[in-house]
Write a protein that binds this DNA or RNA. Structure first.
Length: 804
RNA sequence: GCCCGGGUGGCGAAAUUGGUAUACGCAGCAGACUUAAGAUCUGCCGUCCUCAACAGACAUGCCGGUUCGAGUCCGGCCCCGGGCACCA
């Protein structure tokens, strides 16, 4: 008599044994096996593993287990992205040190993670807030600094005037401070930036070769924002100065009726003496600077600006004198900070021209005719008008001609900005720089790394706008590595995205103290062959990681150009009410209680079964019953099975088995875990109908293809069958093509495209043979009532359609 | 505003990429077992017409088109989710 399915006992038993036997610890090389690096984005130690983590980790593990059974030497590591603001804020709130809070959370989460039963290699655990790890952040920074790719610059930061502190972008919600709801302003502070823009073109180009979701690539492309255009100079009248503008529509230059400068544009200061309305210009610039993020968002529709009276420029194409305006719809950070305004062919210029009653002149029209009144800008292609010699020429051809005529230069611009990594916060990697009165900015020598983050008591931000580290005299004071004099340490810490931009390399060799990872180990594992994580990291994390990899490749530290060859996203799990899970809504699904009620195998499987992986969905409380019952039935049938090897397995059963082996393998390969599980359910339904015919091969194959989804129950049954080695090291069964091909097929019979009957015929019958059979069917004869089909469409093995 | 996804039974979802729409599961209903409940097993389960069966008609957000045949392709709309947002 069968015992009942005791998942609690089975799961804890095998989790202990796997750990003890180090079953999933990856050796750097195994004879006869190819290495496969499988990675999930490491979690932030927020303190609690919620069902969303499970959704990220459990199905991802199914893929890793499948790859392992396919004969690959799989590395599936795990770690914690342990620095960052939430830890700091939580620590401030609870009055405990961020380190204590973080390490405590990691302990809890590691335990919870183990309860999923994932095949992680725990021996390679990475915790980014430990000096052994962040030492290499600092090393990387020095390497970037050496090449001029890390540089210091005054840059605008989000400043909360009430909290008197700098805020990270994540702390600014719709232009307001997250904590006190004060409108955030921009403040200029000296900060460190990484020159990711040097890599813009390569980051764009190399997207082509990646096996990533198309929408993710599109988002990265948009973020990089390449645009081809030209730089054209507008001479300032009665001066030898010129205003350079960037445009993608040089063909519209004949219609440029004024130019617009960004408020920060240097020309205003240079020619200040000549400005007639100095006061109003100064006032506008001042206003623009104090404008909050909030104002900019709300003012999106109506344009503001001021004319710079007393200075004009020449339109180099028409040689007409045109005015200069200043408006904050032009931004200093893109292009040249100045534009030529063509109201007839640009929406924003059009709105601006209407607001200030400026002339609107066409330079392109659909068919060469001029419109009398222009009620909206014409943005399409067309032919040139008002353009002298170029009239009637298609505008896309005229583009280059205009640039030539005025002596402009072709130019490519990117929206991508350099990466600002300075954080005026405590809980992060110290930037390894000292400031010496004599020597200036001096990098900390490599041999002095790590610059250890001191365990200070007071880590709350204050009104100085500097990191709390500045309050530690001991940390702040340093000797200059160059001259030996007294110097001051940089007190800002690094953005945590630095930590996560290279951690995947560290897993190859996590305990190395001499180099960031051994060259041979890097070669044996990287790049990551399958990377799994949330789509919310589409731009920042994934782009930064690609940038670091390219830099390391340039410097010869790694031999690959892209960190993640293949990428898949999981969806988001919503609460039972269809809303985002949150404590305040009270709709958070707790995985721990589900595990104790149904077992880890059931929770894993339900997550994989509920929808397609990238789609996510609401948690349906009773839905888990389906997979739980399935596992109970698996237990019932296989824990009591007595194999009768003399019994001949019916062809139909063999066929079902092999079809399922194929289906499950094919589906896992494309991350369709839901349909793979459905196929397993169908197979079980069939096996149950004829239990006596199940032999050892069928039972073992079934257990093997179920193993990635439900690792514990399958391991238990597998060993009960008498196997000595883990099912997770067993070979994925091969399907037999012969067994799958059926001799007979069901042919669908349609009349005018509507199904009227079905008939079982030989697989290889041709059209005329099939037609003869079909025309003799009672239902078809009745439906045709004597009429002859005008046309017959025959799809071999599938259907026949009679058109009357 | 622009760029991506998506809209299929009471619910979560399938559909070999133009070829049997609704697989698999949840919930529900009926029956078996049970003193009973639960668990388990068996059957039914898109809508409409019909006493019922057979059969039929209508159904994949809406309107139109292409095709022997459309959830799938094309054109035009309407909702929902995500990203970007004055980038010249």
């Amino acid at each position: 008599m069968a015992t009942s399915y005791n998942y609690k006992k089975i799961e804890s038993k095998w989790q202990k044994i796997w750990k003890k036997e180090k079953l999933f610890e990856a050796k750097d090389s195994v004879k006869g096996k190819k290495n496969f690096y499988h990675l999930v984005m490491f979690p932030y130690p927020s303190g609690d593993l919620h069902i969303g983590h499970w959704y990220n980790f459990a199905p991802a593990d199914m893929y890793a287990r499948f790859k392992r059974m396919q004969g690959l030497n799989v590395l599936s590591p795990i770690g914690f992205d342990a620095f960052g603001l939430p830890a700091e804020n939580a620590a401030i709130k609870r009055k405990i040190h961020p380190e204590k809070w973080t390490m405590g959370n990691i302990k809890t989460m590691a335990k919870q993670l183990e309860s999923i039963g994932n095949s992680y290699d725990w021996s390679r655990l990475i915790v980014t807030c430990q000096p052994e790890y962040y030492k290499w952040n600092q090393w990387l920074f020095l390497k970037l600094f050496e090449k001029g790719l890390a540089y210091r610059k005054k840059a605008a930061a989000n400043w909360c005037p009430s909290c008197k502190t700098v805020l990270a972008n994540e702390q600014v919600i719709d232009g307001y401070c997250e904590r006190c709801q004060t409108a955030v302003v921009q403040k200029e502070i000296d900060q460190w930036l990484l020159k990711i823009t040097d890599y813009a073109e390569r980051l764009l180009e190399d997207l082509e070769v990646l096996d990533w979701p198309e929408r993710t690539k599109i988002m990265q492309r948009n973020w990089i924002g390449r645009s081809e255009g030209a730089e054209i100079e507008f001479p300032v009248l009665s001066s030898n100065l010129k205003v350079k503008v960037f445009t993608t529509r040089a063909d519209t230059l004949p219609g440029a009726t004024y130019i617009v400068l960004a408020p920060e544009h240097p020309l205003v200061t240079v020619l200040e003496e000549r400005i007639l309305n100095k006061n109003s210009v100064r006032e506008y610039i001042e206003q623009a600077r104090h404008k909050t993020e909030r104002d900019r968002i709300s003012e999106n529709k109506s344009k503001t600006g001021v004319e710079v009276k007393g200075i004009t420029v020449l339109n180099p194409f028409t040689e007409k004198e045109i005015p200069i305006w200043i408006s904050d719809y032009v931004i200093m950070g893109y292009g040249t900070g100045a534009i030529m305004a063509v109201p007839a062919h640009d929406k924003r210029d059009f709105a601006f021209a209407q607001e200030f009653k400026l002339p609107i002149i066409q330079s392109v029209s659909k068919d060469g005719t001029l419109k009398e009144t222009i009620s909206e800008p014409y943005l399409e292609d067309g032919v040139m008008v008002n353009a002298g010699d170029l009239d009637k020429l298609p505008n896309h051809i005229a583009k280059d001609r205009v640039v030539e005529t005025v002596g402009g230069k072709k130019k490519i611009n990117y929206k991508l900005r350099d990466w600002l990594i300075s954080r005026q916060r405590y809980w992060g990697t110290p930037i390894p720089i000292v400031y010496c009165d004599g020597c200036g900015i001096v990098p900390v020598p490599e041999t002095d790394l790590p610059v250890v983050l001191p365990r200070v008591k007071d880590f709350t931000p204050d009104d100085s706008g500097r990191s709390p580290l500045a309050k530690s005299k001991k940390f702040l004071t340093a000797t200059c590595p160059k001259c030996g004099g007294t110097a001051q340490r940089e007190t800002d810490t690094m953005d945590t995205f630095v930590d996560s931009s290279w951690y995947f390399i560290r897993y190859a060799d996590p305990n190395n103290d001499a180099v960031f990872a051994d060259d041979k180990k890097i070669k044996s594992w990287l790049p990551v062959q399958m990377y799994i994580g949330g789509a919310e990291h589409t731009v920042l994390h994934l782009l930064y990681s690609r940038f670091f990899t390219k830099f390391l490749n340039d410097r010869g530290y790694v031999d690959f150009k892209e960190p993640f060859s293949a990428l898949r996203h999981q969806g988001i799990i919503l609460g039972p009410d269809g809303q985002k899970m949150s404590k305040s809504r009270g709709n958070v699904v707790d995985p721990d209680s589900l595990v104790s009620e149904f077992g880890s195998d059931s929770v894993r499987m339900y997550l994989a079964f509920m929808s397609e992986y990238h789609q996510g969905g609401s948690w349906h409380p009773t839905g888990i019953m389906g997979v739980h019952r399935f596992l109970q039935r698996v237990w019932a049938i296989f824990s009591s099975v007595s194999f009768n090897e003399s019994q001949i397995v019916p062809d139909a059963m063999r066929r079902s088995l092999h079809k399922t082996i194929k289906k499950v393998g094919d589906d896992i390969a494309v991350f369709k875990f839901n349909t793979a599980i459905a196929a397993l359910m169908i197979l079980l339904n069939e096996l149950e109908k004829n239990k006596e015919a199940i032999n050892k091969t069928i039972a073992e194959d079934f257990i093997k293809i179920l193993a990635p989804f439900a690792p514990h129950i399958t391991e238990e049954l597998w060993r009960q069958f008498g196997n000595q080695e883990s099912v997770h090291l067993a070979a994925w069964p091969e399907y037999d093509v012969q067994a799958i091909t059926e001799a007979e097929i069901e042919l669908v019979v349609q009349i005018n495209g509507v199904v009227r009957d079905k008939v079982v015929i030989g697989r290889s019958l041709d059209q005329s043979a099939a037609e003869a059979i079909v025309l003799n069917l009672e239902k078809i004869k009745a439906a045709l009532s004597g009429k002859k089909p005008k046309k017959v469409i025959f799809v071999p093995g599938r259907l026949i359609n009679l058109v009357v």
